[in-house]
Amino acid sequence: MTNTVSTSATRRPDRAALVIAVVLALVAAVIVYSTATAHGGSTTRIGPGAFPYAISGCLFVLSVWTGIEAWRGDFPEREAQEFGPVIWIVGGLAAQMLLLNTVGFSIATGILFAATARGFGKRPLWMTIPIGIVLSFVVWIIFAKGLQLSLPAGPLEHLI
C-alpha cells in the first residue's frame, strides 16, 4: 500500500490571493468610511446611502472568502505571467488618456483599440488603427449626436 498525502495539506498559503483579500477589505473600508462621512443626501432610512453599504458588505464577504481560500491553498496554480500584452494594453490606455483632449475621442480610442488588439495577438497596427478609429467614430456619433452626451471632439469629429 502506498501512502499518499493530500495536495491541499502540502500546499502553502497563496500570498497573492492573501494580498487580494486585504485589498478587497481595504476597498470595503474606504467605501464605508466615505459613505459615513458624506454630507447631504436623503433623509429616508433606505436611500442612496444603502447601496454603498451593500456593496462594501459584499466586498467584505468576498475578502473573507478569498482570505480563507488563500490560507487553505485552494486556488489553482497560476500560469506564468506574460508582461508584453499587459504593457501594450496599459500603454494604449495611457496613450488614450494623454491624447483624448488633443486629437479627440475617435483617434485616441482607435489607438487604444489597436494597442489592445496587439496585446491580444493581432499584429498589423496599420490595419487595427484605422479599424479602431472607424469603430470609435461610430461610437462617438451614437453618444454625441444620438444621445447628446459630451465626448471630447478632435479634428475628425469636427468634420461633422
Rank of each mutant, 00 (worst) to 15 (best):
V90F: 14
V90D: 05
G91N: 07
G91H: 11
G91L: 10
G92A: 08
G92V: 04
G92C: 11
G92E: 10
L93T: 13
L93K: 03
A94K: 01
A94T: 10
A95Y: 12
A95D: 08
Q96K: 08
Q96I: 04
M97F: 14
M97L: 15
M97Q: 09
L98A: 15
L99P: 06
L99R: 04
L100M: 14
L100W: 10
L100H: 07
N101M: 11
N101R: 14
N101H: 12
T102E: 10
T102I: 14
T102H: 07
T102Q: 05
V103P: 03
V103R: 05
V103Y: 07
V103H: 01
G104H: 04
F105N: 00
F105W: 15
S106P: 06
S106D: 03
S106G: 04
I107G: 02
I107R: 09
A108W: 02
T109S: 15
T109A: 10
T109M: 14
T109W: 11
T109V: 14
T109Q: 00
G110K: 07
G110E: 08
I111A: 11
I111H: 02
I111C: 00
L112N: 03
L112W: 13
L112Y: 12
F113S: 00
F113Q: 01
F113D: 02
F113L: 06
F113A: 09
A114D: 00
A114N: 05
A114K: 02
A114G: 01
A115W: 07
A115P: 00
A115C: 15
T116Q: 01
A117V: 10
R118P: 00
R118M: 11
R118H: 12
R118G: 06
R118A: 12
G119Q: 05
G119C: 10
